[in-house]
Amino acid sequence: MQLWNNKFSNNDLEALHTFEKKVKAGKGDSVEVYFTDISTARSIFKDIISKQQAKNIIADSSGLTRSFLEESLLDESLNIYFDGDKYTANAADIGVSEMEFAIAESGSLVELSDSIWKRLVSAMPSLHIALVCADRIAKDFETAFEILKKHILDVAQISFITGPSITADIERVLTIGVHGPSKLVVFFIKENKQ
């Protein structure tokens, strides 16, 4: 099921800029944000894979994610898992999953994570690739909560993801990647208008 309600759809560049500014604030280069079509996103992803020397990828099985991974699935040097146990998730280098929508005000991604696997995809690997349909940016919390409230009874868990896993527990020095990803790459995928 989907949370997003089309009445909120927009192609608001200002909202996108706010999102980018907020999600990156104070986190250095641990967050990357792209606003692009799916084929460009795939090629950026390819570069990331080779740079990271990634072997194991875990992913949710949404249509957008599967389509995004089309080319990677043909690459025999990669193991891509659409489900598995905790240890499979733990061993992965990269997690790829679709986010329901984004919130500009706070720079957050809203993950509908009833599925335990989907949650592990964004929580366990060192690198998380988040895919969002480009027109799904809610302006602020009020809008986001209006969307969420309509569907609240159908979902057991929702997460707002706002950057990588960080800590400042030792001498208040910001350190990235303590429990979850040390890098978050967000792709806003523009629809291909043919």
Partner: peptide
């Protein structure tokens, strides 16, 4: 901070993976 990196909203028992 604008927001913590993670906000989890728990609305009920979801799923668990059992080995």
């Amino acid at each position: 901070q604008t927001l913590t990196s993670y906000v989890n909203i728990i609305l009920g028992p979801s799923q668990a993976i059992v080995e």
